[in-house]
Design a binder for these strands. Sequence first.
DNA 1: CCTCCTGATGAAAATGATTTTCAATAAGAA
DNA 2: TTCTTATTGAAAATCATTTTCATCAGGAGG
Lengths: 152, 152
Amino acid sequence: MKNCECPGAEKLHGRFRGCGYRMTAGREAVIKVLQETQEHLSADEIFSKARVINPDIGLTTIYRTLEKLSMMGEVHKLDSGDKRGRFELANSGKGHHHHLVCSRCNRIIDYDDFIDDEVRLLKEMEKKLSKKYNFAISGHLIQFYGVCDKCK
Amino acid sequence: MKNCECPGAEKLHGRFRGCGYRMTAGREAVIKVLQETQEHLSADEIFSKARVINPDIGLTTIYRTLEKLSMMGEVHKLDSGDKRGRFELANSGKGHHHHLVCSRCNRIIDYDDFIDDEVRLLKEMEKKLSKKYNFAISGHLIQFYGVCDKCK
DNA sequence: CCTCCTGATGAAAATGATTTTCAATAAGAA
DNA sequence: TTCTTATTGAAAATCATTTTCATCAGGAGG
């Protein structure tokens, strides 16, 4: 097995193939960009960074890749309040976390403090709600809105 | 005081004036539509319903009114997964509730079951997070995603 | 290593929700 | 009633995202 700087892409190759899809240079670039950032990038920002790796990639491919990864559950699409979507890898080193969203600058801050208490309650809620509403819960979104330190 | 079928609008008149804004027929129509629905309407749907009350109203006014109400904290803008925004009155009869969002049909279901436990935890989180991140928290968004009974 | 099927791609056009522009209108304080 | 200025509708502009379509390239099977 060759030395791959992009171990996640290696794993994702299999996931793609398993779904009848292919791993391509463009997709690898998108995945690499997502793995190397700590921010919550928009499609356009991912496009800029992916171009450094693969100058021929088109914005369309960024959108198509994000959509596939999103359907595969490998990427979460976030809504930061400005009109464009923002994306983060579901299985990055970050672990389970939620978001603080600044209403003024739209910055998204990750937090995982007290996450255990939160997750415990969420699991309970999920169980109760899915029974009562006959709703198959597959994920959740927890965010606090407000004004961040820089904008105060 | 005249008999007003639209008591919330009455209250909101004052809020508008207090901000240096005016209460107009168009705004009243938007508020009335929001008060009379149980659903989570898009701007366009609000437009259709508001036209019944005030046939001359334009879509632009709907957007402008929603934006003002939103900034005043009287309306919450929701993201249901399809690309258009959906809106709900913050102070309707519904009380504090959160959402179940169907990933398939984008329907949004309100729930207020076990809300007290949730709110208790959220308040605690808010206090701890705002201190740690020096972040002035003004609201939260809690949603569970999944597939609703009708789509299963 | 070669072939072929089919998924993937980029560029350009299309879409569709939301915003802006602008001249005309109307709230509401004085 | 007057006057200031917020508000309005229509049309044009934005802008993120999607679709179209002709071309290209993974990768399974030989």
